[in-house]
Design a protein around this nucleic acid. Structure first.
Lengths: 138, 138
DNA sequence: TAACTTTAGTTGTATATACAAATGTTAGTG
DNA sequence: CACTAACATTTGTATATACAACTAAAGTTA
């Protein structure tokens, strides 16, 4: 088997396993991986709201219906939507206190899972691994 | 940010990009990534048919409706289904000549894409990268 | 051999995702 | 200032996915 083929299969297989474990972990908290990632993006804004385009741009899975994903988060009162007063085409999404609280509850378990996944790596190996991943993307 | 968290996000992000590129590549051939992987699993059987459980076990994305995924491939005449004569609970799925032909057409482009993705790696680095991925899974 | 358990696959239902077309808003041009 | 293009988001539709309940066949045991 050509080496690139094997590596790509290995990559997809591994990422999928990690995704499944993450989905499972998030289930008791009532959110999906995608919703979780959007919440983290919004937390990263440090109070500043983000519009849908910004969110979509930073999402791991780039799909076009960010609207509906955010709708789910609004239903759960984890984020707020506000039409941008300067540019009424835009909407500004910001994480609520309740959203921040939920994230803070998830932080512990998710870091624990992530640490378990990479526990066999030395810091140097982890650095190398990250560089390898970035190299594939470039 | 804790190092495990960063690495896992990096992994998911990269795998997703690779998945998107693969989806795009397969589109003109009229199959999805999942369907493509099932076809490759069946080709790997070298003439021997596989039952649904075996297919599901080897699939990258483990979901429970392998039945419907295989149905799509049957509609396209890329695989055949036959009830196992020894054990009528089982069904045996095998790739058709038309399925093999389609795979052989895709092999070139997909290897080209995969090689492009890992072109910056030396063989040693690729080996290391594969070991890292396996380490995460274990 | 009837009743029970396990195995293998199928089906129903709810939700998620992808893609394209549509809507409403702003900016630019003659 | 009407006209056109670009932008930001929403909506429609088809397909994919996850999960659970269901069916049917085979094996097990009293």
């Amino acid at each position: 088997m050509p080496s690139g083929r094997k590596t790509v299969i290995n990559l997809m297989y591994t990422a999928n396993l990690v995704g499944e474990r993450t989905t499972e972990l998030l289930k008791p908290f009532g959110i999906t991986v995608q919703q979780f990632n959007v919440l983290r993006i919004l937390r990263g804004q440090k109070g500043k709201p983000a519009n849908l385009f910004t969110i979509q741009e930073r999402m791991i899975h780039k799909m076009s219906n960010t609207t509906r994903l955010v709708d789910k988060l609004i239903e759960k009162k984890l984020v707020d939507r506000m039409v941008c007063p300067n540019n009424r085409r835009k909407v500004e999404i910001s994480i609520t206190d309740s959203g921040l609280k939920l994230l803070s509850e998830i932080d512990g378990p998710i870091d624990e899972l992530n640490l378990t996944l990479v526990e066999a790596f030395t810091p140097e190996e982890l650095e190398t691994f990250n560089i390898f991943l970035e190299r594939i993307r470039s």
